[in-house]
C-alpha cells in the first residue's frame, strides 16, 4: 500500500527539518521529486543526499513571479506532476500590537499566498491528467491560536479554509486537497530549548514526547497515495494528542 512508484512530486521547503523528512518519505515510496527551497546550496546538498534521479529547483517563495514559474519548471523537468506538497513556512513572531506590516505580509505571502499560487498552477496539469494530490502543511496553531503568532496562525488557518474550497472545486477531477497539521515536532529549534521548557511542553502532550519529521512524512505519504483518493478537504492532525479537533 501507499506505493508512489511512477509518481512525481514537488515539495517546497524541502531542505528544512520537516520538509526533508517529507521528501525522504515520498522518495522512499518510489516518487520522483523536484525539491524546492530558498537556499540553493543547502537544497543541492539535500538533493544529492537523496540519491536517485531527483532534481532541485531553488525558489524564493516571497517572489510571486518565481513562485508562478515553479510548477511549470517542475512539470517540464519531471514530465508530469502528481503530488504537490506545500511545506515551506516562515515565522515572524511578535505580539500583534508590536507587529510590523512587513512581518504580517511576509508570513502571509510565503505561507498562504505562495501555496495558493502553486496549487493554481498545479491544478492545470492535474486536471488534464485527471489525477492530483495536494497536501499543505498547516499547524495545530492554525486551530488553537498562539500568542505572538497572529500572522502565522492566520496563514495556517487560511491554508485549511483554502484547501476546503479547492477540494470542492477539484474533487470531480480526481484531485484531492488536504492538510497535515503538525503539533510540536523535534527540530533544531526545539533541541535548543532549555530542559525545563521542554518538560513543560511535553506535559501538554498525552503521548509524552515531541513528534518527529517522520511522523509528518507518514501522514503526507498517506494523503499523497492513490489509496487516499476518497479523502479530500481534510486536515490530518499529527500531534500526539495535544489537541483533538
Amino acid at each position: 500500500m501507499f506505493d508512489l512508484t511512477g509518481m512525481t512530486a514537488l515539495v517546497t521547503g524541502a531542505s528544512g527539518g520537516i520538509g526533508s523528512a517529507i521528501a525522504r518519505g515520498l522518495a522512499a515510496q518510489g516518487a520522483r521529486l523536484a525539491v524546492s527551497g530558498s537556499n540553493a546550496d543547502k537544497l543541492e546538498a539535500f538533493r544529492a543526499s537523496l540519491g536517485g534521479d531527483h532534481l532541485a529547483l531553488p525558489c524564493d517563495l516571497s517572489d510571486a513571479a518565481g513562485v508562478d514559474a515553479l510548477v511549470p519548471q517542475a512539470v517540464a523537468a519531471l514530465g508530469r506532476l502528481d503530488i504537490l506538497v506545500n511545506n515551506a513556512g516562515v515565522t515572524r513572531d511578535n505580539l500583534a500590537m508590536r507587529m510590523k506590516d512587513e512581518e504580517w505580509d511576509q508570513v502571509i505571502r510565503v505561507n498562504l499566498e505562495a501555496a495558493f499560487r502553486l496549487i493554481r498552477a498545479a491544478a492545470k496539469p492535474m486536471m488534464k491528467a485527471r489525477f492530483g494530490r495536494v497536501v499543505s502543511i498547516t499547524s495545530v496553531v492554525g486551530q488553537t491560536g498562539n500568542p505572538g503568532q497572529a500572522n502565522y496562525a492566520a496563514s495556517k488557518a487560511g491554508l485549511v479554509g483554502m484547501s476546503k474550497a479547492l477540494a470542492q472545486e477539484l474533487a470531480s477531477r480526481n484531485i484531492t486537497v488536504n492538510c497535515v497539521a503538525p503539533g510540536f515536532i523535534r527540530s533544531a529549534m526545539t533541541d535548543g530549548l532549555p530542559e525545563a521548557q521542554k518538560a513543560a511542553l511535553t506535559q501538554r502532550i498525552p503521548a509524552g514526547d515531541l513528534g518527529t519529521g517522520d511522523d509528518i512524512a507518514a501522514a503526507v505519504v498517506y494523503l499523497a497515495s492513490r489509496e487516499a483518493g476518497y479523502v479530500t478537504g481534510q486536515t490530518l492532525h499529527v500531534n500526539g494528542g495535544m489537541a483533538m479537533i
Binding site: 492545470k124 486536471m127 488534464k128 472545486e169 477539484l170 477531477r173
Partner: peptide, 11 residues
C-alpha cells in the same frame, strides 16, 4: 458543462 468544464475547454 459546469464551470470547471469551461476552464478545461478553454485550456
Amino acid at each position: 458543462a459546469d464551470s470547471l468544464d469551461i476552464v478545461e475547454l478553454v485550456m
